[in-house]
């Protein structure tokens, strides 16, 4: 039976949700509205006046070679971050699921990276891969590999992907482990008796039953890669070399605060806002329809 508290008047409930509404208004609706408003103007070089350009900023962006390149960079970056962090997490979760003893310790250790702030994680990885004093760089040098992510675009991308994925593995691991443990043991045992070996069982039973978790993580990780990796990129590469790691959210920052092109920056935020809204809608639609086994 559903237990629902009902209020008589309108004032008490309003009062109770007011703090949340205020926070959302101050930190979301107001800046979002401002971004939409600003995206319709171009400020003059001294910031003294604004000139109405309608959708001019958007038109310019969509025809801008650098902006389109940033789109591609973002796509590559988020796919890599998502695949790497989910792949590693799933592998570890499968191992932990089979482990009976000591899985608690294992789990605790795996959760630690999640507690590290992205910017701090970026600095950690930067130290290890520093082109002059980094430990990993030094070992790679012994092996005859000359690591230099400051100049090499591929290496720069690789490093920000690894640094971003690393902090994400814990989160994905927890969800995958919970998902695996929610699959009835007897179903997997029945498959074993039916003749399925480990990989066949994984492919035909575990993976399909895990798909709601996988889909959820896919969306969450893409959103993470789009937005929350700012700190990692800022500390490690600052979007370089030659914009090779300038993802959309970083471009908003560099065009707006470094390049002082507030109109374009605002227009870019609006585009990001649209993208994340679409992702969220897709996710909610799916969760609504998703089958509960």
């Amino acid at each position: 039976m559903e237990k629902r508290v009902t209020f008589k008047g309108i004032w008490l409930p309003l009062l109770l949700v007011l703090p949340q509404i205020l926070i959302t208004a101050v930190f979301f609706f107001y800046p979002a509205g401002q971004a939409i408003w600003q995206s319709l103007f171009i400020p003059d070089p001294f910031g003294l006046s604004m000139q109405w350009v309608g959708l001019g900023n958007f038109e310019f962006l969509l025809s801008d070679r650098f902006y389109r390149a940033s789109f591609l960079t973002t796509a590559i970056f988020s796919i890599l971050v998502t695949v790497v962090s989910m792949g590693v997490a799933l592998y570890l979760a499968v191992l932990a699921d089979r482990l009976i003893k000591g899985s608690g310790t294992y789990r605790t250790l795996l959760i630690w990276p999640y507690a590290v702030a992205p910017a701090v994680a970026g600095v950690l990885w930067l130290f290890m891969f520093n082109t002059r004093v980094g430990v990993v760089t030094w070992y790679l040098g012994i092996l005859g590999y000359d690591w230099n992510h400051v100049l090499n675009e591929g290496e720069a991308m690789g490093l920000v992907v690894v640094a971003s994925a690393w902090g994400r593995i814990s989160y994905n691991f927890l969800f995958f482990l919970a998902g695996l443990q929610a699959i009835p043991k007897s179903v997997v045992e029945a498959a074993a008796i039916d003749g399925a070996r480990f990989w066949t069982r994984f492919r035909t039973i575990v993976w399909p039953l895990l798909s709601p978790t996988t889909f959820f993580l896919l969306v969450v990780n893409i959103i993470y890669a789009f937005f929350e990796t700012f700190g990692v990129i800022h500390t490690i590469t600052s979007g370089g070399p030659q914009q090779a790691t300038t993802i959309l959210v970083y471009k908003v920052y560099s065009d707006g605060f470094v390049g002082q092109d507030l109109g374009s920056s605002a227009a870019q935020s609006v585009i990001l806002l649209v993208i994340v809204s679409i992702l969220t809608v897709v996710q909610f639609k799916y969760i609504e329809r998703r089958v509960h086994y």
């Binding site: 009835p184 179903v187 045992e189 029945a190 498959a191 008796i193 039973i205 399909p208 039953l209 086994y293």
Partner: peptide, 12 residues
Amino acid sequence: AMVFQNYALYPH
């Protein structure tokens, strides 16, 4: 072959 108490059918 085994028949389980909760049947353990493949739900999908």
